[in-house]
């Protein structure tokens, strides 16, 4: 696949009501803020919030779907900047910022339906 600087791609995921519970089972992250809406309200989050690493996995999926091969993702990083609530819709927009040797650097913008960036400084590297 020929990847060029400036190329863009996108994806989105609907966070269904039970997503944090499925993710808890698969990842082992059973922190009550993710699986117990009452607990989430008690600590001021307004309900249960999705595990940040699940949001990062959605972002990684958008990159590997675009690259066509999950093994081509060589690096991904992010800052967790705002909570993702259940029943949110997450949008992911990627852009190739640079290509050095056999690595494409990708900047990602990850937002919830309100426009708020839920991840920041999201950068990935893909083998080209």
């Amino acid at each position: 696949m020929a990847i060029e600087k400036g190329e863009t791609f996108s994806g989105s995921e609907k966070v269904d009501k039970y997503r944090a519970i499925y993710y808890a089972g698969a990842s082992g992250d059973f922190n009550p803020i993710h699986i117990d809406p009452d607990f989430g309200k008690m600590v001021g989050l307004g309900g249960a919030i999705l595990q940040g690493l699940c949001t990062l996995a959605f972002a990684a999926k958008t990159v590997t779907d675009w690259a066509g091969d999950p093994g081509k993702l060589k690096k991904i990083r992010c800052r967790f900047s705002a909570p993702v609530m259940l029943e949110d819709t997450i949008s992911i927009e990627g852009a190739v910022s640079d290509i050095q040797g056999n690595r494409a650097k990708v900047d990602l913008k990850v937002t919830r339906q309100t426009g708020v960036e839920v991840l920041q400084k999201v950068e990935a590297e893909v083998e080209v």
Binding site: E13, R19, Y22, Y23, G25, A26, S27, L53, C54, L56, A57, F58, A60, K61, T64, D65, D69, P70, G71, L73, I76
Partner: peptide
Amino acid sequence: KAIKNQDPHFMDEAFAKKSKYGAIIAPPT
């Protein structure tokens, strides 16, 4: 399934065996 990523590299054994990896691979994350 939990991360809603049903890429055949992870899910489909017949596909995975024929892929360059020769087996089911895990999502990076």
